[in-house]
Design a protein around this nucleic acid. Structure first.
Length: 152
DNA sequence: GCCAACGTTGGC
DNA sequence: GCCAACGTTGGC
């Protein structure tokens, strides 16, 4: 089992939206590293931290899980879509996604500023300077420590 | 809203 | 295949 963190801008799609939807295709990822993680590493049932970026407060707001095998992101073939990619060949799609299923909100946002002060989380990709990857692997130790901060 | 850090693109 | 120019991300 692998653990993950997925960033989202709540103005665009928040954890509340995910809760309302129940399950959501995580479309619009246009970064090869992030794509490769979805395509090659994610397994159904893998737990995911949902992270809200570019808002106050920024931080981990809850939990989801991987709910499908990887499959082609349909938005890449739709010219009306923001994420349309004219270079993607339907015979060999460039972009894939997985479905993400809501699990729970955490009782309090685990704020970025707070996480940075936790020695046990040293080395976490989220906390590295300049780390912009929107889908990140999380080590089991870091996952478990954050669970303990929630009170589990 | 600014801008540093990154990723991608395309001319050569 | 290098790398300058450009676009984007996302914390501040």
């Amino acid at each position: 089992m692998n653990y993950w963190l997925m960033k989202t801008e709540p103005d665009v799609f928040s954890i509340d939206d995910l809760k309302a939807a129940g399950k959501e295709p995580w479309d619009g990822v246009r970064n090869y590293q992030a794509r490769n993680l979805m395509r090659d590493e994610m397994k159904i049932g893998d737990p995911i931290f949902i992270y809200h970026s570019r808002v106050k407060p920024m931080g981990i707001v809850g939990e989801a899980r991987v709910a499908s095998e990887p499959y082609p992101d349909p938005t890449q073939f739709n010219p009306d879509e923001k994420y349309f990619d004219p270079k993607s060949d339907p015979e060999n799609p460039r972009w894939v996604l997985v479905d993400v299923e809501y699990v729970r909100h955490y009782p309090k946002t685990l704020e970025l500023s707070m996480l940075k002060q936790v020695p046990e989380l040293d080395g976490m990709m989220l906390l590295a300077k300049g780390s912009r990857l929107s889908i990140q692997p999380v080590s089991e130790a870091h996952w478990n420590h954050i669970q303990s901060m929630i009170g589990d």
